[in-house]
């Protein structure tokens, strides 16, 4: 396989313990651009493969936008646009605005959580280079994969493959970037 158009080097593992050990080892060797692909969330990997998690601030911003929208809408409609005088009660009866304020806060925060998470994941993205590897379909059922990307400065077809082979992997492949 020629080096032009290579996505990275992939190793397959049959259990989470070997995968996490391998990820540790790869990191210790100085690799930085690598990623694990697993059939369920493994907490240990979060420490080994750090990355920014912007979901909480996005949800917070969504919630604040929701609250502001609800309050502005209710105040404008009830006090300015369509005032209804009910027995002389104040038009800006804010305690009665709380239920809708809460609901819209939740609605906006939840929608931001969903859309924001997908956007941060770069999804929807129907195709991904690793899908070229037939074995990779196991990553969503019972197999564990580790991929060192070619853009890692330490990437070297021979050496990277060799280190994977030393780490209890059950298969090592170089995957094309198509």
């Amino acid at each position: 396989m020629n080096d032009f158009g290579t996505y990275g080097m992939v190793a397959e593992f049959d259990n989470p313990t070997d995968l996490v050990e391998a990820a540790h080892e790869i990191k210790r060797k100085g690799y930085r651009r690598f990623e694990a692909y697993t059939p369920y969330a493994i907490r240990d990997l979060e420490e080994i493969i750090p990355g920014r998690n912007l979901v909480p601030p996005i949800v917070l911003i969504g919630g604040l936008i929701g609250s502001a929208t609800a309050w502005t809408m209710e105040y404008y409609i009830a006090a300015i646009d369509y005032p209804i005088n009910v027995g002389g009660r104040p038009l800006y009866s804010w305690p009665m605005f709380i239920p809708i304020l809460f609901e819209l806060t939740v609605l906006f925060a939840g929608t931001f959580a969903f859309v924001g998470t997908l956007a941060l994941c770069g999804l929807p993205r129907p195709h991904f280079p690793l899908f070229n590897l037939p074995e990779f379909s196991g990553a969503s059922s019972s197999r564990f994969f580790l991929c060192v990307e070619k853009r890692d400065p330490m990437y070297d077809s021979e050496a990277t493959a060799e280190s994977f082979r030393d780490l209890n992997s059950i298969g090592v492949w170089e995957v094309e970037n198509v």
């Binding site: 990623e35 694990a36 692909y37 697993t38 059939p39 369920y40 969330a41 493994i42 990997l45 979060e46 493969i49 990355g51 998690n53 979901v55 909480p56 949800v59 919630g63 809460f102 609901e103 939740v106 925060a109 939840g110 959580a113 969903f114 924001g116 998470t117 997908l118 941060l120 994941c121 999804l123 929807p124 993205r125 129907p126 195709h127 991904f128 690793l130 899908f131 990553a139 969503s140």
Partner: peptide, 28 residues
């Protein structure tokens, strides 16, 4: 599936999103 590939970074974001959605769905 939106092209889900199970990368550990995605799992982390996914877990956070589920937890936050659970947090707002409970009072909801």
């Amino acid at each position: 599936s939106f092209g889900w590939r199970g990368s550990s970074h995605h799992w982390k974001l996914h877990k956070t999103a589920c937890l936050l959605l659970a947090g707002i769905a409970t009072p909801l």
